[in-house]
Amino acid sequence: MNEKRGQVFRHNILFLLTAKDYTYFAHIAEPLSFFRAHEGSISVSSASGKLPLHYALARAYFVENYFPKDANCLAAKIQLMLWRFKDARQYGMNGVNDFFINLVEISKVCLISQFARKIASLPIRVLRRLTK
Rank of each mutant, 00 (worst) to 15 (best):
M1F: 04
M1R: 05
V8G: 02
F9H: 06
F9I: 09
F9V: 03
H11G: 07
I13V: 15
F15I: 13
L17I: 04
K20N: 07
Y22R: 05
Y24K: 07
F25W: 13
F25Q: 10
E30L: 09
E30W: 03
P31D: 10
F34Y: 12
F34T: 11
F34A: 09
F35H: 13
F35W: 09
A37N: 11
H38E: 12
E39G: 04
E39H: 08
G40M: 11
G40L: 13
G40C: 13
S43D: 10
V44P: 00
S45N: 14
S45V: 13
S46L: 08
A47M: 14
A47K: 15
G49K: 01
L51F: 06
P52M: 01
Y55Q: 09
A58R: 01
R59K: 13
R59N: 14
R59Q: 15
R59E: 15
A60D: 07
V63E: 00
E64G: 00
N65H: 14
F67Y: 14
D70C: 13
A71E: 05
C73L: 05
L74I: 07
L74H: 05
A76P: 03
I78K: 04
I78R: 01
M81R: 00
M81D: 01
L82S: 06
R84T: 13
R84Y: 06
R84H: 10
K86H: 15
D87V: 05
A88G: 04
R89S: 14
Y91A: 01
Y91E: 04
G92M: 11
N94K: 10
N94W: 05
G95N: 15
N97L: 06
D98K: 02
D98A: 02
F99G: 01
V104K: 02
V109Y: 06
C110T: 00
C110G: 04
S113F: 14
Q114A: 10
F115Q: 02
F115N: 00
F115W: 03
A116E: 06
A116I: 04
A116C: 03
K118L: 02
A120V: 11
S121K: 10
L122F: 15
L122Q: 09
P123R: 05
P123F: 07
P123Y: 06
R128N: 08
R129H: 07
L130W: 10
L130F: 13
T131N: 10
K132Q: 13
